[in-house]
Design a protein around this nucleic acid. Structure first.
Lengths: 234, 234
DNA sequence: TTATGGCGATATGTATACAGATGACAAGGG
DNA sequence: CCCTTGTCATCTGTATACATATCGCCATAA
């Protein structure tokens, strides 16, 4: 489950005068996002309207709505018959995506280093501590969850809703590739060490250091994933 | 007309295996975006599905699709009956929006300073020269168009599709507020001077200077708009 | 006069039916 | 044997009909 406590994802538009009854389209959108993040739906997989409608026991209408949102969000792209499929960026696009994510996350970290309250900094430290436990226990699934919370805390710490939404959106788009690395490679410990470095910079209220640490963290992630993909192909 | 040559806006998802026949939903989306940018639809204006369907002589279905996209893009938000209306961010949200736009545009400028080809730099210089002409002629409408091309060129110059789309999306969201300032305030000359500064930095392949110049440019814009809104209220 | 509760109108959400386009496949010719 | 072309199945795009919730208004009572 990546969708946060309220089940909200940037793709689901602002909830100003929201109602309590959940629309089918919202549920389907959230469900599809979760499936993509969980890896049940993989890049390139077809998103057939009729099939999805059947599986969710609804008509095509709310399914189409959910797919539209996935498309605008960047999680889905159009294939042959203008049909949607889970986005499968080529190498260049994937590089762009990770580069952009690194920069936007770095921005968040810089602002977080300036703006986080004492309580927020303490909370971030707490999350890093939990990460250390998960690494010690070699608990990949647990670490993935802690990792998500860590980055989320950085985004919130920037105290800028627009930046946060941008960062969350990019993070979701990279998730099909990100989470797998923790299971397939020896990246737990190094990732945790990088988190520690970021935390230190944020605590020191040093924006430049925080931004640099995040950039390196994402670069390391991107490199690791590139290797993983290359290995899978070779 | 803000929508670029191909009538594409980030909200319209990637056009991998696109077809030539334009769908009604696409046309309506583009039309609504244009109306918002042109100021015909202003923040807070209701976007009634039935009324729009009638005015476009189509059913509600494609209208709903277009509205969904506007919502995810951030150009529309939900009002009372879950009905869409043109986004009307409060002061804090608007500050966030401009802050984020400044940062993302600055990122683009930094990358552009590093990556633009000689031809691209020459093209940027050409645009700035055209801007000088429009300022000399006190041609607000003409300058608005040149201004859009200038920023667009910076985004393209970053050579990163994801960053470009993020920047374009943010730029569209701010357009209801941006364009008005050229007509209502004495901002033509100062804006042009700032463009010149950015160009100089990009030509010198100086990312830091380019980023700083853009940040100041957007900050000046945001300040001007804040004053304008305050004046309109007071 | 004000607050409250129900009722009705209206707009959105969903289902279904129809139309159009596209990709696949097979048959025929070079 | 390969390429071309036409037909067909299937999936998306749009229209229309129906269900449902929300908001405003009016009546009624405190």
């Amino acid at each position: 489950m990546y969708t946060d406590d309220k089940g909200k994802v940037p793709g689901g538009e602002a909830d100003a005068a929201a109602s309590e009854t959940e629309r089918a389209a919202d549920l389907i959108f959230a469900a599809l996002v979760d499936r993509i993040i969980a890896g049940e739906l993989r890049p390139g997989d077809a998103l057939n309207e009729t099939a999805l409608a059947e599986s969710f026991a609804v008509s095509r209408t709310p399914v189409r709505e959910a797919l539209q949102r996935l498309g605008v969000t960047g999680l889905a792209q159009r294939g042959p018959r203008r049909a949607f499929m889970v986005s499968q960026p080529d190498r260049a696009s994937l590089d762009d995506l990770f580069e952009a994510m690194g920069e936007v996350e770095a921005l968040c970290a810089e602002y977080a280093a300036r703006r986080m309250s004492a309580a927020e900094r303490a909370g971030l430290a707490e999350i890093v501590a939990e990460g250390a436990e998960r690494v010690a226990a070699t608990d990949e699934a647990g670490y993935i969850a802690v990792n998500a919370r860590f980055h989320r805390a950085l985004f919130d710490g920037a105290h800028n809703a627009t930046l946060r939404d941008l960062a969350l959106g990019l993070r979701i788009r990279t998730s099909p590739y990100r989470d797998a690395q923790f299971r397939r490679t020896e990246r737990l410990a190094s990732s945790q060490a990088e988190h520690q470095r970021i935390l230190t910079a944020v605590r020191a209220e040093n924006p430049a250091a925080a931004g640099a640490a995040v950039r390196e963290h994402i670069a390391a992630t991107a490199l690791n994933i590139a290797r993983m993909i290359a290995a899978a192909r070779g």
